[in-house]
Amino acid sequence: MTLWYRVLQPFVRWVVIGLLRPRVEGLEHIPASGPAFLVPNHQSILDPILVQAICPRAVDSMTKSTQFSNGIFRWLLPRLHAFPVRRYRTDAQSVRVVLRRLAEGRIVCVYPEGERSWDGCLQPFRGGTLRVLLRAGVPVVPVGIDGTYDVWPRWGTRPRLGATVHLRFGEPLHFGALQDRRAREAALPEAERSLRRALFELSGEAERAAAEALEGRNPSSEDARVEPY
């Protein structure tokens, strides 16, 4: 763990707990030692801060390369265990960094949706991210984030505190270490289904969809078309 991470993490944790008051569940699902993936849904710019602040172990984050364009962030982010990924091409270097860090027994956080959701709902997963999960063969801890969209949606001009924020760590998924490309491709659909199912439940989206379905019976509400997973 870098000195900067060691110094800043407790401070950010204190700020995050003070301002967002997140309800945290399932911390016991994070392996106490050894490599693992944390795989959260992505609702808000606050998500990476929240995950790193709450996780009891140091978290290395795959971060979009444009974040490193700014001089200050370019200096700071590596010290907070972030590394860049170019999203407009298959970035072999970022995959190498992921595998290297896992080999060192670290926790790596990747966002399978690849970008923040505009409407707070789970988006399609990026095939490349899933392939890395299948190749690495380490426990994959799904992390459901619920409520950060209420605090600061992608389109919001500023945060609005007061919403209830949940952070739920799910039971680790085990996909095995599929080194063979064909085996990975074959396993991809089932892996995607398992992860989507887990994030759908943990992020509270299943609950919201059910509530909206009930609300749909109310004639005053607009057409309640609910498409549960």
Partner: peptide, 28 residues
């Protein structure tokens, strides 16, 4: 923007106001 970001207040021309989930507006 509603009290919860997942809901957006829609003010109708006749003064009615309803909170509609952002997802439903995206579907529209």
């Amino acid at each position: 923007r509603g009290e919860e970001g997942t809901r957006i207040f829609v003010h109708e021309g006749d003064g009615r106001k309803s909170g509609i989930p952002a997802r439903r507006l995206a579907e529209r």
